[in-house]
Design a protein around this nucleic acid. Structure first.
Length: 575
RNA sequence: GCGCCAGUGGCUCAAUGGAUAGAGCAUCGGACUUCUAAUCCGACGGUUGUGGGUUCGAGUCCCGCCUGGCGCACCA
């Protein structure tokens, strides 16, 4: 049982005793109202129950607190209690409780802090990045790549079954424009006098693709019909861009269960239907589809949208929105309980109509859109323009190459997604105290360094050669049943106290879709460790103390590594 | 005009409605013959944009205003 639950039971028992004995006049049992005080001097846990029920009981909250404390049953959790401020009940736990946490960490290892999600909420489709395959990923996409990946990791640890998906917009006019752009560049490179059309893609990569075609095929495409050339180049360029994105994302550590093609929504199956026709028919059945001015409309205003939306244009073409209708319908058909989309804040105007379609199908709330604010790129304080036209933009791939995966991820995750990020390339490259990712990684490396000191040489070499993991090394060095009763120093207790908060933090970060909280936690834990490191020596202490501290070190290592892992950041064993 | 997001020390950010609003950077002052100084300790720094409201209690919730970002297509 979690510490919180055990404490809740204690407080509840005390309340019950107080009410039964008539010392407290309350109509109903209040909540135990436990929380972790921000300030350590206010104990390990605190209850605000006395403050909350003062009015109903018509008593001074401090008096109520005294009654509750007096009724607390005997237990071996709480070492001392204190009534503070207006009526807080502060509980300080016994060192044994925290020593127990360290023991759990080393027993559960990477599973420490795992949560369980109630059935029916568990199967989640998480769609993110979904960059158009008409150009390389830019830095903004990188934020979604980082956020989505971390969210998936955190949610999985919290007990969700997360299915990561990338939606490929490979259908529609943008693809044709892309094909045309490549075709024009191709002809220009061959010396033809053709101008780029108005809305074309002018980035340098388009020319690179065209040059690639020349290198392979020479001028053979100059002779074929324009439409055929466009179509051929479109497919070629599309696959090149898609592959580029797949490579970039794989190199960044992302993994998608599914790369979903928009085109597949239009493929008619043996039963004569497609996701497009099925989704439209399903809305029609419910009466939310109508015709007006030659177009087919979805009555999204029925669900609070500001205007109805066109599904099929007057000219018979499907809108992009229609694809999304079909896409979300398809997700439901695939059996997901819950759909999460990560979008840039510039798409927020699109949210309502998508929520509306889910409501039309009788699944209100099934779609959750996480809107993230955008990334502003700087170099030494100077804004870096990101324009596809001028070709001046920094692609995400270039950013990773210059800054590195770990620093990029950490910085992208270091603030709430509804906060814009000013990403300074030069600042991100700094390998000093101003870059928190190294602070955390350094704590991990320091621990590993101590463990190596007490390990047999053969094992140290095996770890260096990657034939042995740190977990295996520590299992060899530190017995699970080590006596931990010597761990009572403030910095030792602080370390274990911080570890004890991990599970709840993961649950909350998952619930709030806020993996950035893990960066704060990791920094907090690393800081607590660095403090311990300067206060407490490990090697050379008497045998029992050294053994207990090695145990504590290893538990810290495990939780640090897990925190970094949930962020997708590596935990180096030396730096 | 309407809508969404934000506004917290010089800078970057925290704070399930809880206590004296916390960290880091920067600045200044200390700590390496001892397990990695990419570290630690200390000092300086605040009317949480603004005016009301809700309550035992507001940075947090509600309303107005100010400032900034983004969006308001039969584009994708």
């Amino acid at each position: 049982m979690q510490i919180r639950e055990q404490l809740e039971n204690l407080v509840n028992d005390a309340l019950k005793n107080a009410i039964d004995s008539g010392k407290l006049a309350l109509d109903e049992m209040p909540e135990a109202a436990l929380e972790r005080p921000r300030d350590e001097s206010n104990g390990d846990w605190a209850s605000t129950v006395a403050l909350r029920c003062a009015k109903q009981a018509k008593m001074n909250p401090r008096q109520i607190a005294e009654i509750i404390v007096g009724e607390l049953p005997q237990n071996d959790l709480v070492a001392s209690t204190e009534i503070a401020g207006p009526g807080f009940i502060n509980l300080t736990l016994s060192p044994a409780v925290f020593q127990g946490v360290a023991r759990i960490v080393r027993t559960e290892k990477g599973d420490f802090g795992k949560g369980e999600i109630p059935a029916g909420e568990s199967f989640v489709n998480l769609e993110y990045v979904s960059a158009n395959p008409t150009g390389p990923m830019h830095v903004g996409h990188g934020r979604w790549a980082t956020l989505g990946d971390a969210m998936a990791r955190v949610m999985r640890h919290a007990g969700y079954d997360v299915y990561e998906e990338f939606y490929i917009n490979d259908h529609g006019t943008q693809m044709d424009i892309f094909g045309t752009s490549v075709a024009v560049r191709y002809l220009q490179l061959l010396g033809h006098d053709v101008a780029m059309p108005e809305n074309s893609y002018g980035g340098g990569y388009v020319k690179d693709i065209a040059q690639g075609i020349i290198d392979r095929d020479g001028d053979k495409w100059a002779a074929v019909e324009e439409a055929e050339r466009m179509a051929a180049f479109r497919e070629l360029a599309y696959h090149e861009m898609l592959q580029d994105m797949k490579d970039t994302l794989a190199g960044f550590g992302n993994h998608f269960e599914c790369w979903f093609s928009e085109r597949s929504l239009y493929v008619v199956g043996p039963d004569g239907t497609s996701p497009v026709t099925r989704s439209l028919a399903s809305m029609d059945e419910k009466g939310y589809i109508y015709k007006k001015e030659g177009a087919v409309w979805f009555k999204s205003t029925a669900f609070g949208d500001e205007k109805d939306r066109v599904c099929i244009k007057e000219n018979g073409e499907y809108t992009y929105f229609m694809s999304d209708v079909a896409y979300h319908y398809d997700k439901l058909e695939r059996g997901f309980d819950h759909l999460i989309n990560i979008w840039g804040a510039d798409h927020h105007g699109y949210v309502k109509r998508c929520e509306a379609m889910l409501e039309a199908w009788g699944r209100p709330g099934a779609l959750e859109v996480v809107l993230g604010q955008l990334v502003n790129l700087y170099r030494d304080g100077e804004a870096v323009r990101m324009s596809k036209r001028t070709g001046e933009m920094v692609t995400f791939k270039e950013l990773i190459e210059e800054v590195g995966v770990d620093a990029t991820r950490y910085l992208m995750l270091s603030r709430s997604s509804d906060q814009p990020i000013d990403f300074d390339i030069e600042a991100a490259k700094k390998k000093d105290a101003s870059n928190p990712v190294y602070y955390v990684q350094y704590a991990h490396a320091r621990i590993c360094s101590i463990l190596r000191r007490v390990a047999p040489e053969a094992s140290v070499e095996a770890v260096a050669a990657n034939t042995m993991t740190m977990d295996e090394l520590s299992a060899q060095l530190i017995p699970l049943d080590t006596d931990l009763s010597r761990l009572v120093e403030p910095s030792e207790l602080a370390l274990m106290r911080t570890m004890s908060a991990f599970g709840e933090l993961v649950t909350q970060a998952a619930r709030d879709r806020a993996p950035f909280r893990l960066t704060h936690y990791a920094q907090d834990l690393a800081g607590t460790f660095h403090q311990f490191y300067t206060t407490c020596h490990v090697i050379g202490e008497d045998a029992e103390l050294q053994a207990a501290r090695l145990y504590l070190l290893d538990a810290s290592r495990i939780v640090l590594a897990k925190s970094l892992d949930l962020l997708g950041v590596s935990a180096p064993t030396e730096m």
